[in-house]
Design a protein around this nucleic acid. Structure first.
Lengths: 211, 211
DNA sequence: GATGTGAGTTACCGGTCAGTAACGTAGTCG
DNA sequence: CGACTACGTTACTGACCGGTAACTCACATC
């Protein structure tokens, strides 16, 4: 529940969160602002003001803006995998339903009014190529997603699991990307689920029950 | 008053470009820098310096940085459709080959070392939501792409042309987006063509020659 | 009630960035 | 020649942004 396991909470008052600590308020605010308006276009002054505090309190809680950004990306990554595991846990031994439920849940997220695409991917677009720490973080994340999708395609028994996993990743990132332009569910994400099912079907032997 | 309207040269020396005018040098430089490093992170000073001139000459040729950005996006858009038309022109009455050659050509572009994804889409990611002119430009562009892909799917005789066109767009934008993270052709774009063919096949009656 | 700590306030520094003013200069063309 | 055009140069403004210094206050705990 508490944000960081560092030195913030020295005693045992964290369970009843009556008054959230400044650090948490800043962090939550920053996450929302970063996601909604992009990282570069949100200054620390704006974050502090929106969190109801000021810049000095910001720098008492965070080493730098870059450190906050890194923590933001790590948090989004953590939430992503948490969501992923919780979603596929509903069908422990059915990789086909795992993939389908994953993309159905993904579709729900992406259709949401407040969705602004993939936080990690958007960050990659904003960053310069020479930004080592942040872009390496995103690269590692995307590699993991690719690996997991390929693994699921393998468990599914696909003829070419690498190709199927990669194709699914193209669809997933494509839905994130188009979402930046098309509001709500008005965009090409309408065709996400049929495409997922068609790609799966094309990789399985002819006689397979389709849900 | 006279700076940035539409036509920079009042006379007829523009055809033989022996010594490129400052405006063109600035524009070409800006296009490359914007695409390579993002729009927000490239200042007008950097553009002018890289073009071998200075800021004052910049502002004699362009009304503002925003005006230059808009022109940059319009130029990329123009080039895109030029490329599109030239690519599908090779198969005037074969929508299937048109789609396949389009995606094959797209793949060549996206595999290129210097590719940094979709210039228009990246710009959308960088911009705030309230940026009216620029984001409307990108939105219009993406809508056009979607319309064209759906039209080609219709000409193909797909069972659900809207779904096929949208799915193809997800793949196209997905390959742009993943390209921001995976260098060269090391990413999921390896599975682009098989996915395109599988989606097409899933939308056609069973007996269709595949390439 | 002294002490330590989390937090708010004001003011500042150095840098960057978009945009402007004023001036200098080389070539071109009547 | 003189005027006009295209471009270069220096210096500046005002805003913003990341980051810091120094001070103050509220409060909790011993």
């Amino acid at each position: 529940m508490n944000a960081a396991n560092d030195d913030v909470a020295g005693h045992e008052a964290e369970s009843a969160g009556a008054k959230p600590r400044v650090r948490d308020r800043i962090f939550d605010t920053a996450c929302e602002l970063f996601y909604q308006h992009g990282i570069r276009s949100v200054g620390v002054d704006a974050i502090a003001a929106e969190a109801g505090t000021n810049k000095m309190s910001f720098y008492r809680s965070f080493e730098s803006k870059d450190a906050l950004v890194a923590e933001y990306l790590r948090e989004r990554q953590r939430e992503f995998w948490e969501w992923w595991e919780a979603t596929i846990a509903a069908y422990p031994d059915d990789p086909r339903r795992q993939i389908e439920s994953l993309f159905e849940a993904h579709l729900v997220i992406v259709k949401d009014k407040a969705c602004r695409g993939c936080a990690l991917g958007n960050a990659a677009g904003e960053m310069a190529d020479d930004d080592d720490v942040l872009s390496e973080l995103v690269r590692h994340f995307k590699k993991d997603v690719r690996k997991r999708l390929r693994k699921m395609a393998h468990e599914l028994g696909a003829r070419d699991p690498e190709a199927l996993g990669d194709a699914l990743m193209l669809l997933m990132d494509g839905s994130y990307f188009t979402r930046l332009v098309f509001p709500g569910n008005s965009g090409p994400i309408a065709a996400l689920m049929p495409a997922v099912r068609a790609l799966i079907a094309s990789q399985l032997p002819a006689g397979s029950a389709s849900s």
